[in-house]
Design a protein around this nucleic acid. Structure first.
Length: 602
DNA sequence: AGAAGTATGAGGGCAACG
DNA sequence: CGTTGCCCTCATACTTCT
């Protein structure tokens, strides 16, 4: 709710100019009073008092009120697909693109004269105790074998398929042989399709050109028209339509398993030679993130909007001790990546050594599940304790099942005899790759800490992908960070040693903005940090102003709200059109604006 | 009023079956 | 290829406490 609320939560809009790099200087025009001109979001909320939700739904997609009302009258309220079809058909005749609207600018700017902090000083926050005690934990046979094979240096994807090929009972050495054999056999024949069959089978790009079917003709027409006009609204509608028709990507597009992305650190994987569509190529580079297990069709839509780039699905369990299945769409190079040092521990027992002593032999977990925004109740941990106290030492099967189910569901760890507990916020910070106490203090409540951390990037994972920027931008980068949260992107870049010259950070939550600002000041940044509260207030004029000021953005990064995509949401898992998750379209809108502005003048 | 505590499954992937 | 069972999921709504 806070994500969408349009209150400007008391921004003291002021420019704090300061001496800095010298070449770039912020403009000194004072911000406009918030109430002077209505921004787009205000327009919608005004209408909400007099218009039903359905009308607003389509208005939010960019259709005019008149058109929407007419379309609903034609098709009836129940048939949203038909309504959309009508709107699209009518709009294909031609409507004016979205008007740029002047909106209030709520930003503060600061800089710091201190010398750029030594990266090592930041590293001191990442002392992982690496006690090399033997701790054998049993996990599922396949996982265990997979882990061994990965440690032996085999690519995870090949190892996984070899295990399947040889059967679950095959010894590891036999599986290793099988991988060798497969590698030899495929030496010259392995293609990208073999690695990611579900996303490349249908050749979506090629299908535009050969309009053999009616659908394809329509698609071709839309693509052509889109290219001619090249405006946001057209692309949005075209993408939406294609995704809904489900004929671009395979209907049952599945996520690659194991979820390893295009590469993992310290693994010799078959290099993926991806070809980016022309429209996808920067500048700027961009990087978009969201939950991998979104409702059906969501990633197809996201991919279509983001210039038909195939998402990179990665589970952060390959980077840290917790699962975090996420999809990333980006136009970064994927060769010569390197991981952050030191490498974080990959098991719970290493990451939280104090739990080792109390970990029962029948709890086979070596990693945690996804870190979320809420924790288990004290009542539950007490029920677990009570059940164990009243059982014999190895508890009966039934009790074990109960305890394990709850432990997995709530990510409980063992902190005493028969005692489980949820993770502490600082433990989550560590697992996610943030400096200790990153979210602590400054008036943030414990509940808010959990919420902010649960919504965050896993820093090591993102940093691995962003690492390619380091040698490309030895003098640092200008960053546009949308939905910044607690600054996962900023922290990742900083830990990579990539200088942040100018950072425009857009984040609605004042609490999170305070966290970023605190981190910024604490790490002795020498660049400029500009904070903007509402992404919907960021319009073309403002972007153009900033781009002219900075000389363009080098990276546009962000993970839009997942509220309506996440499986944990029992109430409003409405997909990309959901109240909060629809802000994805603002990510695209802004990215596309930046591309267009930079394309014109750079 | 804000923070903390608590209860609340559906949806979809996957593998093992027949 | 349909069925079944198992598993996991960047959360929300409501109540209680301070």
């Amino acid at each position: 709710m806070e994500l969408i609320s349009d209150s400007d939560d008391g921004d003291t809009s002021e420019w704090e100019t300061d001496e800095d790099d010298g070449d770039e200087r912020p403009p000194l025009n004072p911000p406009l009073p918030s109430a002077s001109v209505a921004g787009p979001s205000q327009k919608v909320s005004e209408a909400s008092s007099s218009r039903p939700d359905l009308v607003l739904h389509f208005m939010a997609m960019g259709f005019s009120e008149d058109m929407v009302v007419k379309a609903i009258e034609e098709n009836g309220e129940g048939n949203t697909e038909a309504i959309l079809e009508t709107l699209l058909t009518h709009s294909a005749i031609g409507i004016s693109p979205l008007k740029r609207e002047q909106s209030p600018v709520d930003c503060t700017l600061s800089s710091d004269e201190d010398v750029l902090g030594d990266d090592l000083s930041d590293m001191s926050n990442f002392e992982y105790s690496s006690e090399d005690e033997e701790y054998t934990v049993e996990c599922s046979d396949k996982d265990r074998k997979l882990s061994i094979l990965i440690d032996m240096g085999f690519p995870a994807d090949e190892a996984s398929s070899a295990i399947t090929r040889c059967g679950p009972t095959a010894p590891v050495l036999e599986i290793a042989d099988s991988i060798h054999a497969a590698q030899l056999a495929a030496e010259s024949a392995l293609t990208e399709d073999d690695l990611f069959p579900s996303w490349s089978e249908d050749k979506p790009m090629a299908s535009y050109a050969c309009g053999s079917s009616v659908k394809n003709k329509r698609k071709y027409y839309e693509m052509k028209k889109m290219n001619e006009r090249g405006c946001f609204l057209d692309r949005k509608k075209a993408c939406f339509r294609q995704a809904n028709m489900g004929d671009g990507f395979p209907s049952g597009s599945s996520i690659p398993k194991p979820m390893i992305g295009f590469s993992l650190p310290n693994q010799k994987m078959k290099p993926v030679n991806r070809m980016l569509p022309e429209a996808a190529i920067g500048p700027p580079y961009f990087y978009y993130e969201n939950v991998a297990l979104a409702p059906k069709g969501v990633w197809e839509t996201i991919s279509r909007f983001l210039y038909d780039i195939e998402p990179e699905f990665v589970d952060s369990k390959f980077f840290c001790a917790a699962n975090r299945k996420r999809g990333y769409v980006h136009n970064l190079p994927i060769q010569n990546r390197f991981p952050l040092q030191p490498l974080p521990p990959r098991t719970v027992q290493e990451a939280l050594p104090m739990t080792k002593k109390w970990w029962p032999t029948w709890d086979h977990r070596t990693q945690l599940n996804c870190l979320q925004t809420c924790i288990a109740s004290a009542k539950l941990t007490e029920r677990i304790r009570s059940a164990l106290v009243n059982s014999e030492d190895p508890p009966p099967e039934r009790v074990q099942r109960f305890v394990m189910n709850e432990c997995k569901k709530w990510n409980l760890v063992w902190v005493g005899l028969h005692k489980v507990a949820p993770l502490e916020p600082d433990e989550m910070e560590m697992l996610l790759g943030f400096p200790r106490d990153h979210t602590r203090g400054g008036g943030i409540s414990r509940t808010e800490r959990y919420r902010s951390l649960g919504n965050s990037f896993q820093v090591d994972t993102v940093a691995y992908h962003l690492s390619v920027l380091k040698e490309m931008f030895p003098n640092g980068i200008n960053l546009l960070s949308l939905f910044s949260g607690i600054g996962g992107a900023e922290v990742a870049l900083n830990r990579l040693g990539i200088h942040l010259r100018n950072v425009v950070s857009v984040e609605l939550s004042e609490i999170n903005r305070n966290i970023i600002r605190g981190w910024w000041e604490q790490t002795n940044q020498t660049g400029n940090l500009i904070e903007i509260a509402d992404v919907q207030h960021l319009n073309g004029d403002k972007l153009e102003q900033m781009i002219n000021m900075f000389g363009g953005f080098d990276l546009v990064i962000g993970g839009s709200p997942c509220n309506n995509l996440a499986g944990s949401n029992r109430y409003s898992r409405d997909g990309l059109e959901g109240k909060e998750s629809a802000l994805f379209y603002d990510y695209f809108r802004i990215l596309d604006l930046v591309k267009n502005i930079m394309g014109k003048s750079f």
